[in-house]
Nucleic acid binder design. Structure first.
Length: 566
RNA sequence: GCGCCCGUAGCUCAGUGGAUUAGAGCAUCAGCUUGCGGUGCUGAGGGUCGCAGGUUCGAGUCCUGCCGGGCGCACCA
């Protein structure tokens, strides 16, 4: 907030002094890397110098002169080629730090309705590591949007029709020795989701290796579509299907609960959007948006620098391209959203462009409001890759188990809070976009840049506060800060801007970087400065409290619990 | 072949709307700390920021080319 306030002041001053329209572009106000450069550093004079053809140091001096009149400014220096280094008063830092504990991002505009679609697991298949990643990232992104003051509707879209379902059905029917829904329960045992996953793997392998099975699977695919069309819940085939689908949704919901992510507002099965999808594509086929080719209905993306994709295959079934057309139209119809965000893996980003481009031809508004965020793959240390072929998947549960095992190997016995903190933080701290390498040992470690480390740092700060007893009820800084205290306070004051940055970019990793640096700053302070019983206890208590509040708030934005005790 | 993304210390990563000396964790080495919870603190070594040009007073950050890697390019999601 301090940073933004100063930016605005500088823009105003540039207008007054030289009539220069400085939008936010170009000038930069940042928290100083070195205490010698003050609390905030600004390069405005260097940018203005080029435009005005004047010496940067002279411009910097002129700006500095005006900034010195501000009440929250203690001192302003011009340094180097023309940097303006601003030193704030203790009181200004304190107020910024207190405000940061529950950093709110106030926007002048009305609250927006934002759809966020993520996780998107397919029934009949297990949640693999990639689903875990999208689920956690989607939860974090949603929290950031909410912090922005907007309403978030969490959507979960999954393929309950399509070839993968047909493959699973093949595996199931094989295992049951025919279409015998009555045998399902006994066959599956306790681990229903695991059992379904194994059947899918068998069906998938058979589809590739066995021509007879392949034929049957193609037929099953059509039967699954048809049972939706005819609303068939009675036939043995349909009973197997609906039971399996329900088991999958039960399993997904249970897993989301275990992950402690906010609940989804709505699950949208593909079958629900299929009728609208088919109807729309066929209408737009007549309008010339889509066209026929080799018996299929396609969209030619080349005209827009993209590629051609099939929307309805030559058998007459919609591909996932068409279903996504139905999905976006359904979202638009049901929610009339201000913004719609879809989070998927990178491999889908070009596909998504083609699909959106086709919809833009006949329904441009929802497309204009849509945004696709994509992330990379999850890899394990040692180069093990996640593969969903042939059943050798690394599942979401495998990742959690790996964290637990790594923790136990070091002699600690991590509870579920710790394990979740480890995995969530490990995923959160890397910028969304590229592949990430997950190292269970590093993630669960109590030292280094890890989730458990930060949970521990928070718990310890709370423990200090508990020892001190009742708070001092101070709304003002009780004493001027000494040097070590001041450094910590300056770091705390930066939090509000970190949150603003994260909510604007929808990238959570900056919060991780900040929160870890904050813990380091605190440890440096704490190493040499007693709190309990010190003559400066009152002021230091305020620091510890602000520190604990900021840690908790940061972790909360990441969906990580910050218990008072571990 | 075309398109999209990526290449920063041994490893994993920040930093990329140009700007004061390129940072962190892990690993290695040397000290300190064993009564505010076990995390820690101080310091050292380790970087031609893939390569080559260009723009600029100034480039890890912008532009171009190349090299290397990942992904996508018609009936699978």
């Amino acid at each position: 907030m301090l940073r933004q306030t100063l930016s605005k002041q500088i823009i105003t001053l540039a207008q007054e002094l030289w009539g220069q329209e400085l939008d936010t572009g170009g000038i930069e106000v940042s928290f100083a890397a070195d205490p010698a450069f003050g609390d905030l550093a600004c390069n405005a004079a260097l940018v203005l110098a080029r435009r005005l053809g004047k010496a940067p140091r002279d411009l910097a001096e002129a700006l500095a002169e005006r900034l010195r009149q501000r009440p929250e400014v203690a001192k302003v220096e011009v340094a180097g080629p023309g940097f303006i280094n601003v030193f704030l008063t203790d009181g200004a830092l304190y107020r910024a730090a207190r405000g940061g504990g529950q950093a709110r991002v106030v926007r002048s505009s009305r609250s927006q309705k934002v759809l966020v679609e993520y996780s998107d697991p397919n029934p009949f298949k297990p949640l693999h590591a990639g689903h875990l990643y999208t689920t956690l990232v989607g939860d974090m992104v949603s929290r950031l949007i909410e912090r922005r003051g907007d309403e978030v509707i969490r959507l979960n879209y999954g393929g309950d029709v399509g070839l993968h379902v047909a493959r699973a059905m093949w595996g199931i029917i094989q295992a049951l020795g025919g279409e015998h829904p009555d045998k399902l329960e006994a066959a599956a045992g306790d681990d229903r989701a695991g059992w379904l996953g194994a059947r899918y793997a068998e069906g998938s392998a058979a589809d590739e290796d066995d021509p007879e099975a392949h034929k049957t699977i193609i037929a099953y695919n059509q039967r699954v579509y048809r049972l939706h069309e005819t609303n068939d819940h009675e036939s043995p085939f349909a009973q197997i299907y609906w039971t399996g689908r329900q088991w999958s949704y039960d399993y997904f919901k249970q897993l989301y609960t275990e992950l402690q992510v906010k609940a989804f507002d709505r699950f949208i099965p593909e079958s629900e959007v299929t009728p609208l999808a088919v109807k729309t594509v066929q209408e737009q086929l007549k309008q010339g948006v889509y066209e026929r080719s080799d018996g299929a209905v396609i969209f030619r993306g080349e005209a827009y620098g993209l590629h051609t994709r099939v929307f309805i295959n030559s058998v007459g079934l919609p591909t996932y391209d068409a279903k996504d057309v139905g999905l976006i139209l359904m979202k638009w119809r049901d929610y009339h959203f201000d913004e719609s965000i879809v989070i998927t893996a990178n491999e889908q980003s070009q596909y998504y462009e083609v699909m959106l481009k086709s919809v833009e031809q006949f329904e441009p508004e929802p497309v204009r409001r849509s945004r696709h965020l994509s992330h990379g793959m999850v890899k394990l240390t040692g180069g093990r890759k996640m593969s969903s072929r042939k059943g050798n998947v690394v599942t979401a549960m495998d990742i959690l188990a790996a964290a637990r095992e790594a923790g136990e190997a070091t002699g600690t016995h991590p509870n579920s809070d710790t394990i979740l903190a480890a995995v969530k933080y490990a995923f959160a701290k890397v910028r969304i976009g590229g592949d990430i390498v997950y190292d269970p040992k590093e993630s669960i470690a109590l030292e280094g840049n890890s989730g458990p480390y930060l949970q521990y740092a928070h718990a310890r700060a709370r423990s200090i506060l508990a020892k001190l007893g009742r708070p001092a009820q101070a709304n003002e800084l009780v004493q001027p800060l000494d040097e070590a205290e001041r450094r910590l306070m300056a770091k705390l004051a930066a939090y509000g801007d970190v949150v603003i940055e994260a909510t604007e970019t929808l990238l959570p990793h900056g919060i991780c970087t900040y929160v870890y640096e904050l813990a380091q700053t605190f440890n440096r302070f704490y190493e040499r400065n007693r709190v309990a019983g010190d003559e400066r206890e009152a002021v230091r208590r305020q620091l510890v409290e602000a520190y604990a509040d900021v840690l908790r708030d940061g972790l909360t934005l990441l969906g990580i619990a910050a218990p008072d005790r571990l």
